Amino acid sequence: MLVVLVSFVITFLLSLLLPFVVKPLLVRLGVVDVPNERSSHEKPVLRGLGLAVLIAIVLVEAVFTVLTASTDPDGTAWKYLLIITLGTMCSGFLGLSEDLKGISVPVRSAVLLLIATTTSVAVIWLTRALYSAPTFGWNPLPWVTTVSVWVLVLLGIYGVLFISSYINVANFMDGLNGISGFHGVIAGLTFAAAGYLTPGAGWLIIAGLVLAAGFAGFLPWNLTKPGAFLGDVGSYLLGGAVAITSFTALIAGVPVLATIGPMIIYFGDVGTTLVKRVRAGHKWDEPHKEHAYQRLQQLGMSHVAASGVNAAFTVAASLLGLLSLLVAPVWWILLLVLGIALVVLYQLTPRLLSRKMTA
């Protein structure tokens, strides 16, 4: 536990202090967020401070990967940490490239798919190698009785779509002060709790706490004047770190609901909004302010208050996911239904609050 706490403290301090070095560099490079149709702020604000979070998270994860490998070279813990670290780093660097000079949509999509494919295949191959490779007699998933090569293929496809889409989701949702920072902290603590409750998943505790500490260190910079934004480097980092950690935990045997709990509110907000826009005849990729969190802010809520509502629903969904570690699988359907109900209630919250304010 001492080692785990050290990983949290060091990451937090690095994330909190590195902006003193990174911020002047961003100012010289002119990395500024200018308000547009999607923005919820009115004045230009420095962005790209996610670079400090990226350095803090990747550096600490790399150190603990090496330490874990030196103490247990034949184990899988350091290999899982290595995959998460490299995938997180690549996601952040992709966002950094977008911040500094911009990337065309085809190139960005291709790189996202490459990151998602590489990490998914690496995780599945590593875990499969622990079992009977010739017969694919691998069964870390409690709801699957027999794992065939086709199941591995389906898991790989799921991983590619899951990781690549969530990086975009995290980018879409990064529109209010506090919202991404809160999300990173909640997701990280949820993964750490899942690792604590899952035998043999100590690596997940470290990955989760490092993720939480990295975004906790960013929050003071984001929430105090004059403020600063993560930028694409930070939102891509957030999406990549959360999705890759979630998928790795799933393949390593953590129940699916525990791995996706912190993500369903984000997925629900983006998915529902895109469907509504397509049905209304709008282009899905046009800038807009129709997400539930944006509609909350438009009702007069402060950035922190609207982000707090999103965070509260994310905490509730995360707790439901963690409950799947404590109950029999037969109860997972109930937990899933409750999770979907949370997504629906979250989407209705702006409308319900609007009616209450006008009543």
Rank of each mutant, 00 (worst) to 15 (best):
L335T: 08
A228M: 08
T85Q: 07
V256C: 01
L219Y: 13
F12H: 00
I340C: 08
E37Y: 13
L152K: 00
S354T: 12
F162S: 00
L323H: 06
L5M: 10
T85G: 04
V242H: 06
L17P: 00
A228W: 08
A207H: 11
R108H: 04
L335P: 00
F229C: 01
G159K: 07
L197I: 12
T190K: 02
V160A: 00
V309H: 02
Y166Q: 01
F8A: 06
D99N: 03
G156V: 08
S165L: 05
V58P: 00
L54M: 12
L113D: 02
Q347W: 14
F267V: 11
R28S: 09
L345S: 12
L348S: 10
A62V: 11
A341G: 14
L219M: 14
T71V: 13
T118N: 00
I205F: 02
G30A: 11
L54H: 11
G281L: 03
F191W: 06
W332M: 02
Y158L: 06
L230N: 05
A317T: 15
R351H: 13
T272K: 02
L14I: 14
D74E: 15
H183R: 13
P262N: 12
P140I: 07
A194S: 11
S109F: 15
Q298I: 05
W331I: 05
F136N: 09
P134R: 10
E290R: 13
L325D: 04
H303V: 04
V6W: 10
K43L: 05
G271P: 01
V337R: 06
L81W: 06
A249I: 11
S318Q: 10
F136D: 04
E37K: 10
L319Q: 09
I244W: 04
I205V: 15
L26Q: 04
I83A: 11
P220C: 07
A280I: 12
L26N: 03
D285G: 01
T68E: 13
S164M: 04
L94M: 07
Q297S: 10
L204N: 02
A359Q: 09
W143S: 05
G339R: 03
V270T: 15
N171A: 10
V337M: 08
G30F: 09
V111C: 01
G178E: 07
L59T: 15
L26G: 02
S246E: 04
N222F: 01
K101L: 00
S104W: 14
L176S: 10
S307A: 13
A311Q: 05
F93I: 15
S7W: 09
T135V: 11
V34C: 00
I115G: 02
H288W: 12
V153F: 13
Q298C: 00
Y131F: 14
L59V: 15
L161Y: 09
A316D: 06
S148K: 08
A216M: 14
F182K: 01
T146C: 00
P262L: 06
V22A: 03
L353E: 04
A77F: 11
P134E: 03
I103W: 08
A133I: 14
R128Q: 05
S165R: 07
I103C: 01
L320G: 05
G234S: 09
P199F: 07
A317I: 10
L112D: 07
G48V: 12
L67D: 05
I340P: 00
V60N: 06
H288G: 00
M1G: 08
R279K: 15
K283R: 15
S246I: 05
L141S: 09
V254W: 11
S148Y: 13
T245P: 01
L113W: 13
L353H: 08
W332V: 03
Y266I: 01
